[in-house]
Simulated scan of single mutants.
Amino acid sequence: MSTRTRRLLTPVTAAAAALLLWAVAVPLAGADLTVDQGGTEQTVGPAMTAFAALAIGYAAWGLLALLERFTARGTRTWTIIAAAFLAVSLLGPLGAVNTAATLVLLGMHLLVGAVVITGLARR
């Protein structure tokens, strides 16, 4: 598989992995994925899960392409930036309304981050 094809499919794979975790946690296990967003509660559903994974995956690919084109160590620089973004993103699930939601959302962030970082950075 070419690098371009693999990179094109990486965000789709990340979204599929996040949706699989969502499907196991919400419909099967009965977790309530609700997050407090500044006084407003928001439920994390499948559409939001897929959209977020796809958006971050394709944005990450765009940044990687720019860094590879304009810097000598683009992939290495991108990997460091991606790991930092993943670490910061782990603060988001801490606003969940219950422990189960926090754990599931942390798992989703880690899963999507792992798929995107390993899928895009690999040569």
Score class of each variant (00 low, 15 high):
Ala25Cys: 12
Ala114Asn: 07
Ala121Arg: 09
Ala47Arg: 10
Val12Leu: 15
Val88Phe: 12
Trp22Tyr: 15
Ile81Glu: 04
Ile80Asn: 02
Arg6Pro: 05
Leu120Asn: 04
Arg7Val: 12
Arg7Leu: 11
Thr43Pro: 00
Met1Lys: 04
Ala100Pro: 03
Leu9Asp: 06
Leu66Met: 13
Gly57Pro: 04
Ala100Trp: 07
Leu63Pro: 01
Ala23Asp: 06
Arg122Val: 13
Ala96Lys: 11
Val97Thr: 15
Thr3Gln: 14
Ala47Gly: 07
Leu66His: 08
Tyr58Lys: 04
Leu94Met: 15
Gly74Ala: 09
Thr118Ala: 15
Val104Phe: 07
Ala16Gly: 12
Tyr58Asp: 05
Thr71Asn: 04
Ile81Met: 13
Leu54Trp: 02
Leu9Phe: 13
Val97Asp: 12
Met108Ser: 00
Ser89Trp: 02
Thr118Glu: 09
Leu86Arg: 04
Ala84Asn: 05
Leu8Glu: 02
Ala55Gly: 05
Met108Val: 14
Leu21Gln: 10
Ala72Lys: 09
Ala59His: 02
Leu64Phe: 08
Pro93Thr: 03
Trp61Cys: 07
His109Trp: 01
Ala50Leu: 12
Leu90Arg: 01
Met48His: 01
Thr34Phe: 03
Leu94Gly: 11
Trp22Ser: 05
Ala60Val: 05
Leu8Val: 14
Ile80Lys: 06
Ala53Met: 07
Leu86Pro: 02
Ala72Ile: 06
Asp36Met: 09
Leu90Met: 15
Met1Asp: 05
Ile81Asn: 02
Val35Trp: 02
Leu64Ala: 11
Leu20Arg: 00
Leu21Trp: 12
Phe70Gln: 03
Ala16His: 02
Thr5Asn: 06
Leu20Met: 11
Ile117Ala: 10
Leu94Gln: 14
Trp61Phe: 10
Gly119Val: 11
Thr75Leu: 03
Ala96Arg: 08
Ala23Lys: 04
Ile56Val: 15
Leu20Glu: 01
Asp36Tyr: 04
Ala65Pro: 02
Arg4Ile: 12
Trp78His: 04
